[in-house]
Design a protein around this nucleic acid. Structure first.
Length: 428
RNA sequence: GGCGCCAUCGUCUAGAGGCCCAGGACGCCGCCCUUUCAAGGCGGAGAUCGCGGGUUCGAAUCCCGCUGGCGCUACCA
């Protein structure tokens, strides 16, 4: 959440007026709520063993009946018996909600509208576990009430549990908050992106070179839209325009391709200064250990404008500019010769030598002076400019795909360029 | 199996009875620009609005049924 820039006003790490914020320190509140429902007859202790529960469920499944607690401990008699067995085994009990056998509850959802659930389909669910900890159902309700929460926005997978929650609110005498269930985000396979996996995968996206701003923008537009055309929208605009009524009801498939495009947009639009920070970090991480640290931020500042529109992911930075930081290049003969000089190594070699002298003679070491000089040379050599440039490109950078050649040479500096031109020629 | 939710281009979406023989974006294809790669510009293919019935002068938009997808069905959240 922090990486995405999603901040919160209260929490275990920052405190707040309604603490404590750690569940284990709030046990007494959950206990008290359970006691209250026990006293009111809205809940009861269940002493059934997990073995019995498994057996009951197995039987129900076999009979193709919906698996649910059979309510044995609802009966005082049976409960007492179960209790004796449990105590003999040294087991403790759970507290279950005593769901009315008939009737219905109606959920008023801010997004999905009204839906009515038949209580007969809801079993006596556990609120307090045998270790004394509450289940989510009880915990969030007690916490939200005490913390004065007005809106609960959560994934759609909770909609089935909502009637239970309504039951608890009522039993405890709480006014339910606004409940809004959000459509799920599905993976490319169409299945729910599990929360447990999601937590790790946010960092996987970070490590894969995505910017938190792009991720935020992309995620914000899954299931919600500002209008019929806005794709790039800032955090501030989201805050200003976000409304529940523009949330769609259907699940969205997480489309990485679009995220990647969006990331490229953010890289291109980002203020240069921040971009340099981000690029520098990426290089600190991705450049080989042989490159001395810290990375020269000023140098990155000169390179950044050249590569910002060429990459979509931060992980691509290194492959576009490692040659600025490397001492020695390793040439792949095939790359160096390219199509134009294939089988003409001698010509390439002499061309490279000529490029060296011409470059050496350039009055100012600037990209346009270099370009003018090398274009003239290409004419003189009766070689296509593009072909000559490709040769020089690989000689100077070691790569076939690079930022603009002459700008790169300008940044690299005369000495290193001339040295590389020689090294390339020698390698042939 | 039970209960529930949902249903517009491959994907994200606009659309709340006539403006829609459906608009935008990603991706894809082509052209232009060009020293590579991108970016950018222009253009194109791509949805009988899941299917079938209604209601209406008129339906992607309202109603019903079907089908499909997904979710829940734990002493997990």
């Amino acid at each position: 959440m922090r990486w995405l820039g999603l901040d919160y006003d209260e929490g275990p790490d920052i405190g707040g007026p309604y603490g404590p914020y750690v569940q284990s320190e709030r046990i007494e509140y959950y206990r008290a709520a359970a006691e209250q429902m026990l006293a009111q007859g809205d809940a009861y202790e269940c002493w059934c063993s997990s073995e019995r529960m498994d057996a009951v469920r197995a039987e129900q499944t076999r009979l193709k009946q919906p698996p649910k607690y059979d309510g044995r401990c609802r009966e005082v008699q049976a409960q007492a018996e179960a209790r004796r067995e449990a105590e003999a085994d040294g087991r403790s009990c759970v507290v279950r909600f005593k769901t009315p056998l008939a009737g219905s509850v109606t959920l008023h959802d801010a997004i999905y509208g009204e839906s009515t659930f038949d209580l007969a389909t809801i079993d006596d669910f556990v609120m307090l576990k045998s270790d004394g900890f509450p289940t989510y159902h009880l915990a969030y309700i007690v916490d939200d009430e005490m913390m004065k929460i007005t809106h609960v926005l959560r994934g759609n997978e909770w909609i089935s549990s909502a009637p239970r929650h309504l039951l608890i609110y009522k039993a405890l005498g709480f006014e339910p908050p606004v409940l809004a269930h959000l459509p799920l985000v599905l993976g490319a396979d169409g299945a729910k992106l599990a929360k447990r996996h999601g937590a790790t995968s946010v960092f996987e996206y970070r490590d894969a070179g995505y910017l938190p701003e792009a991720m935020f923008n992309f995620l914000g537009l899954l299931g919600w839209s500002l209008d019929d055309k806005t794709e790039i929208i800032s955090r501030e605009q989201f805050i200003e325009h976000f409304t529940l009524d523009r949330i769609v009801k259907n699940p969205a498939v997480f489309n990485v391709e679009k995220l990647t495009w969006m990331n490229g947009m953010y890289i291109r639009e980002m203020p240069l200064d921040s971009l340099v920070d981000v690029f520098t970090q990426a290089l600190e991480r991705d450049l080989p250990a042989s490159v001395a640290r810290p990375i020269d931020r000023a140098l990155v500042g000169r390179i950044a404008p050249l590569i910002r529109e060429r990459i979509k992911l931060l992980t691509e930075v290194v492959e576009y500019c490692d040659f600025f930081f490397a001492d020695e290049l390793h040439y792949v003969r095939e790359d160096l010769l390219g199509k134009a000089f294939k089988d003409r190594a001698d010509d390439a070699k002499s061309a490279l030598a000529r490029v060296g002298t011409v470059a050496d003679g350039v009055s100012v070491w600037s990209h346009d002076a270099l370009e003018a000089a090398l274009r003239a040379l290409a004419d003189e050599l009766a070689v296509k400019a593009g072909d000559l440039f490709s040769l020089v490109r690989v000689a100077v950078t070691g790569r076939r795909v690079t930022p603009p050649l002459f700008e790169s040479m300008e940044i690299l500096g005369k000495d290193r360029c001339l040295a590389r031109l020689r090294a390339a020629a020698d390698s042939l």
